[in-house]
Design a protein around this nucleic acid. Structure first.
Lengths: 189, 189
DNA sequence: AGGTCATCTTGATATACATCAATTTTTAAC
DNA sequence: GTTAAAAATTGATGTATATCAAGATGACCT
């Protein structure tokens, strides 16, 4: 059950079948329609979400009313308001389905307990955060070092699956440029 | 011994004295002069560094020969090429002293072993990475949402100790603007 | 199919900020 | 303390990209 999740787990840490079972037992499966909000600011964030199928975005709306996309998630990715999740603070982000999606949710309390009984999971999630950290660092670097066109090209190389699937204006937002600019860039390639 | 490190450890996880002892036993202390490189591209990264005293920067030089500062570190901060450290890859970054500095270094192998004997340290470093992750996320957001002036103001609020201590052109680089712009901004405030 | 709404494109204008160049101020070295 | 080197400032100009506005294309609903 959840074969893709299973290989996702085994990619980083060699769990045995019982450990995987213990983990999957904690998960609950749900379907959500496009435009559904899994989280919005103020919510108590008790879960993180693994995408079985579909596409989501996490974004933030600043004081000026502008929204800024922090991450996308498609199949085999995790998404949530991780800051709120880890620090037990209310959400600052929206998490919204860009497509009809099928999600596994993992509860924070269950996870904490799992850490106690099987410390290997502490390792798994440390590795996961570390990878996310590196990806973010590269996003910062890309922003400092590249102009819009180069940033877009890099995005396409890194996330070819996202580029096909996600509307222009969402990608532009993620890359920190206007939809008009992205349109011109696409045209010029 | 290493009182500041001790309280740094206890801030996130309640270690007992033996555990702290086990940790500090792994550390080795060294002094470095200003401009010394602790790491440079190609090095095997076997250590991460805790700053007892001084100031350092980690930066990257891109294909165009431009350098980009990824992080600063002063007293009570950790610094290294974390991507290389965690993934056992050769360094991509330079780590350089901006002042004469006193450093504790922690070896990766020792740390891995410590994880085995005292899993609490796995938790400690997971929390540390998580915090760094959130800080980076905010840096991305700040870059997307603010103009140069607002970014500088935010930097000053967040890191008042750095702002005083680090040369103009290093801060400008970190914030992704030219030294000239930062100078004008400072003048206009 | 037709109509409505969302998304994308294209052109004209505006602006924040980089770049270049020259000068002043600060720091470091002997 | 004098000189050299590094860092910071200031002004003039250029450019990437935002913004504004209008129109074209595409998707979705009944």
């Amino acid at each position: 059950m959840y074969l893709q999740l299973q290989s996702h787990l085994l990619k980083d840490v060699d769990f045995n079948p019982e450990e995987i079972k213990a983990f999957t037992n904690l998960l609950s499966r749900q379907k959500f329609n496009k435009k559904t909000l899994l989280l919005q600011p103020g919510d108590k964030v008790t879960k993180e979400y693994y995408v079985l199928k579909g596409c989501l975005k996490a974004y933030y709306i600043d004081e000026a009313g502008q929204d800024h996309i922090i991450q996308f998630a498609i199949e085999d990715w995790w998404i949530s308001d991780f800051e709120a999740f880890f620090n037990a603070k209310p959400a600052q982000l929206y998490v919204e389905c860009l497509e009809d999606s099928e999600i596994l949710s993992l509860d924070k309390l269950d996870l904490e307990q799992l850490y106690q009984t099987i410390p290997k999971f502490e390792r798994f999630f440390r590795l996961k955060v570390t990878k996310a950290f590196v990806a973010l660092r590269n996003r910062v670097l890309s922003g400092l070092q590249n102009d819009s066109k180069a940033r877009y090209k890099e995005f396409c190389e890194q996330y070819p699956d996202l580029e096909k699937r996600i509307p222009n204006y969402n990608i532009a937002n993620y890359l920190g440029m206007s939809p008009e600019s992205l349109s011109r860039i696409r045209n010029s390639i």
